[in-house]
Simulated scan of single mutants.
Amino acid sequence: MSNERRCFKTAAEKLRKLIEFYRDIDAAASILLSELGGLLDLAKRGQITKLVEPRDIPGYSLFTETRLQSYKDLEAAYTNFYIEFIEARETEAYKMLAAKMAKD
């Protein structure tokens, strides 16, 4: 398994664990799991074979429209999964931003 796919699988597993933890606290996490569950399963099994458009990744609106944004660890895990999923770390824009943030 390539390093990129391993990072993607790890990001999916971490996100699922946090969603499962928060679903006992906040019903919105249950909705998030129902929306993302299929993608998380595919990622865990290494069955994501093509790029997906960012707009096709569910869950973002739950962070803006519910209290999920108050769970910073969950929000960070979702963001990391999202970035891995769209392979944004490979873009020049991401690399430039990361370099600038490392300087500051």
Rank of each mutant, 00 (worst) to 15 (best):
M1F: 10
N3H: 13
E4M: 06
E4G: 01
E4P: 00
R5Q: 09
R6E: 11
R6T: 08
C7I: 14
C7Y: 07
F8Q: 15
T10Q: 01
A11K: 01
A11M: 07
K14R: 13
K14T: 11
K14L: 12
R16Q: 13
R16Y: 02
K17F: 07
K17W: 09
L18S: 06
I19S: 03
F21Y: 12
Y22P: 07
I25Y: 13
I25P: 14
D26Q: 06
A28E: 10
A28N: 04
S30W: 00
S30M: 07
I31N: 01
I31C: 04
L32M: 04
L32W: 00
E35I: 01
G38R: 02
L39D: 11
L39P: 06
D41F: 08
L42I: 14
G46H: 15
Q47R: 15
T49G: 06
E53M: 02
E53F: 03
R55L: 06
I57F: 03
I57V: 09
I57G: 11
I57R: 04
P58T: 04
P58Q: 08
G59Y: 00
Y60L: 14
L62F: 03
T64Y: 11
L68C: 09
L68W: 02
D73P: 00
L74P: 01
E75L: 04
T79R: 05
T79H: 08
N80R: 04
N80M: 03
I83D: 08
I83F: 02
E84V: 00
E84T: 01
F85E: 13
I86V: 08
E87I: 06
R89F: 02
E90L: 09
E90T: 07
T91D: 14
T91P: 11
E92G: 13
A93G: 06
Y94D: 15
Y94S: 10
A99Q: 08
A99T: 05
K100I: 13
A102C: 04
K103R: 13
D104F: 08
